[in-house]
Design a binder for these strands. Structure first.
Lengths: 126, 126
DNA sequence: CGGCATCCCGTCTGATACTG
DNA sequence: CAGTATCAGACGGGATGCCG
């Protein structure tokens, strides 16, 4: 699909369903979790440690949403102590390249954006 | 920069500054406005009409943030009636490819995600 | 025309405590 | 270990009205 057709579709359906999906993807933790899961199957606690700042609650909720949307698979092993592994589905893996593209853009432009914000704050003190 | 280095950086700085920027980009309207501005300079009212569902308030706020971050330029023409045009800066234009990549992914996977949600709801009725 | 100010509500998020 | 439950605060976002 061409770039032009993409822009058409973005504005085509009034962005309703598209934005609904994008809202799900672009929340506080989703992209970070997806990228973290790129390494393979990861246990709940490991995820919790590899994503500093996330609360147990938000990790659970975000994983549930990702599972519901078919981007992440959840596998519980009936052992003691319990073990649950999360992994990307093929759909979830297909999100990696665009996610990295966006993350890469952000990383490359963080300095410029920060500088711009500084300048803006200096221009309008309050 | 390689893909590997990107993933490292994403997890490297604990995602703090990165997530801060990503949060700004991935809110409800930013990507849609940026893509809409890809056509060139657009007036406030035109933008308001081309992005159905957005309120005047959110259009203003989002444009201010984009201006503060140096992604969008705001040009006011001292005329009567007043005319204000918004356009992408070079930094803003550099966001277009990643934004389209993500939007393209969303468009391609909307059906699958919707289906997955349906199945999920059927599996867990309440 | 292109805003800004105000009010208000629903959602998101974090902290804490408890459970199979 | 891997969650769930509950509460409270922050925040996003819509509606409305006023202004240069």
């Amino acid at each position: 699909m061409s770039e032009y057709q993409h822009t058409c579709m973005i504005r085509g359906d009034n962005g309703q369903t598209l934005r609904a999906i994008l809202d799900q993807i672009c929340n506080k933790w989703t992209l970070l979790i997806v990228v973290t899961l790129d390494q393979g199957a990861v246990r709940f606690t490991d995820l919790h440690q590899q994503i500093p700042g996330i609360s147990q609650r938000m990790l659970t909720l975000t994983l549930r949403n990702l599972e519901r949307d078919g981007l992440v698979s959840r596998t519980a092993y009936p052992e003691a102590p319990p073990r649950v592994e999360y992994a990307l589905t093929p759909t979830g893996q297909s999100l990696i390249p665009p996610a990295l593209a966006l993350a890469g853009w952000a990383i490359e432009h963080v300095p410029g954006i920060e500088a711009s914000r500084e300048a803006y704050r200096a221009r309008i003190p309050r």
